[in-house]
Amino acid sequence: MGLRNFQINLDNSKGIFVSGETVSGRATLDLESEMKVREISLAFVGKSNVHWSERQGSSDNRHTVFYTATEYYFNNVVCVFGKGLGGGDEHFLQPGQHVFPFSFVLPPNLPSSFEGGKGHVRYTIRVSIDRPWRFDDNTHTILAFTVLSALDLNQEPLATNGADATDSKMLCCWCCESGPITGTIKVNRVGYVPGESVYFEASVQNMSNRACRMYATLDMVTTFHATTKSCNSFYRINTTPHQDLQPGDSEVWGGERFILPPLPPSYLAGCNIIDVRYILKLVLVPSGTSMPLHVPVEIIIGTIPLQSAVEQYQQTLASAHPSAPPQVAMPAPSYNESIMGSTNIAGEEDGEQTQGQLDFTPTYTYYDWSKSA
Rank of each mutant, 00 (worst) to 15 (best):
F224I: 01
H51C: 09
I274N: 07
E34A: 15
S178I: 07
G84R: 06
Y335T: 09
F114N: 05
T146F: 00
I304Q: 08
V121T: 15
D164N: 14
V105A: 10
I279E: 11
E337G: 08
G341Q: 14
A159P: 06
Q315I: 12
L171S: 04
L280V: 02
D152R: 06
C175H: 14
I279N: 08
Q355E: 11
E349P: 00
T217N: 04
N49G: 12
F100P: 02
N75I: 07
E256R: 03
N232I: 09
G248R: 02
Y366Q: 01
T184S: 02
Q205Y: 09
I299Q: 02
M340Q: 14
G46T: 10
I339A: 00
L110T: 05
E201N: 04
N336H: 12
G183Q: 06
F234H: 10
G2D: 13
F234R: 07
S266M: 03
K14P: 01
T240W: 00
E298W: 04
L42M: 13
Q355D: 07
D244T: 12
E54L: 04
L85G: 08
F104T: 06
L280Q: 02
F74Q: 13
A309L: 03
L245I: 15
Q205I: 08
S178Y: 05
P264Q: 03
V198I: 03
P194A: 02
C212I: 15
I40S: 00
Q205V: 09
N49H: 15
A69Y: 06
P265A: 07
T365M: 02
P325N: 08
I345W: 01
I273Y: 02
G254A: 11
V283T: 01
I301S: 02
Q155M: 10
K118C: 08
A226G: 15
M220I: 12
S338K: 03
V310Y: 02
N206W: 01
K186C: 03
L31P: 10
G96F: 02
K371M: 11
N138S: 09
G248N: 03
H225P: 07
G248E: 07
R236Q: 08
I237G: 02
E196K: 01
S334D: 10
T343Y: 13
A27E: 04
T124P: 00
M35T: 09
P261G: 05
S19G: 09
S149R: 14
A373M: 11
T28A: 10
A27Y: 05
E177W: 12
P194S: 04
T70P: 05
S370P: 09
V127E: 01
T228Y: 10
I339T: 11
E54W: 03
C172G: 13
C79Q: 11
L31V: 14
N206K: 00
P305A: 06
V147G: 04
R38E: 13
L85P: 00
F258K: 01
S113P: 03
A144I: 05
S13A: 15
G179S: 08
A202E: 04
K229C: 06
V80T: 05
S59A: 15
P325H: 10
G341W: 09
G117H: 13
